[in-house]
Simulated scan of single mutants.
Amino acid sequence: MHYLFKVKVPGTPNTIDATLIDGRIWVTLSSVCNSLGIHQPTQQDRLKLTCWAKIERIPLVTERGREQTMYVIDRRTLTMWLATLGVYRNKATRKTLEAYQKNIDDVLDRLQQGLRGEKNYPAAPLAEKAQ
């Protein structure tokens, strides 16, 4: 079973939900879409049509200890997908998108380094390591 944890992205008040699967960081599509104010099902369909996207629907354990099935994308997909989103589409979330585009890769690098070698990682303490 894979556990979710919150990851703070500098320059935004938001967090995204991430997990570690087979030594690789994956991010829930819903957490990113919600923070950017974009429609998740539309983005799922859009990503499924690309040859470069890795999108999976898997069961995850939330911070409240509940099992929930969610769509996740790997970090390469995340960075490529963020680059395809127009910064000027939504003025209300423009700064958040720009912060994600600038900072997400560094944040996930630090997170992956903090998780390396961890087998049973708890949700809260590791999220703090990534900040």
Score class of each variant (00 low, 15 high):
123 A>C: 05
106 D>T: 14
36 L>T: 12
40 Q>D: 00
51 C>G: 13
70 M>V: 05
93 T>H: 09
74 D>W: 05
127 A>R: 06
70 M>G: 00
37 G>N: 15
102 K>P: 02
35 S>E: 11
93 T>V: 09
89 R>H: 10
70 M>Q: 08
110 R>Q: 02
90 N>D: 15
90 N>Y: 07
48 K>G: 03
128 E>N: 07
102 K>N: 08
33 C>S: 11
54 K>N: 14
80 M>D: 06
91 K>M: 01
123 A>I: 03
56 E>M: 07
83 A>F: 03
51 C>R: 10
71 Y>I: 03
86 G>E: 13
97 L>C: 01
56 E>R: 05
100 Y>R: 02
27 V>N: 06
86 G>R: 15
29 L>Q: 08
105 D>G: 02
53 A>F: 11
84 T>N: 10
55 I>W: 06
62 T>S: 14
125 P>Q: 10
110 R>W: 05
98 E>C: 09
71 Y>A: 08
68 Q>A: 13
104 I>W: 01
82 L>K: 03
50 T>Q: 11
70 M>E: 08
55 I>R: 07
108 L>Y: 08
54 K>V: 14
45 D>R: 13
111 L>S: 09
118 E>W: 09
79 T>G: 02
59 P>L: 11
84 T>V: 09
93 T>A: 06
62 T>F: 00
35 S>G: 01
28 T>W: 05
35 S>Q: 13
110 R>M: 00
58 I>P: 01
91 K>N: 03
72 V>A: 12
67 E>W: 02
54 K>G: 08
60 L>K: 06
51 C>P: 01
63 E>W: 08
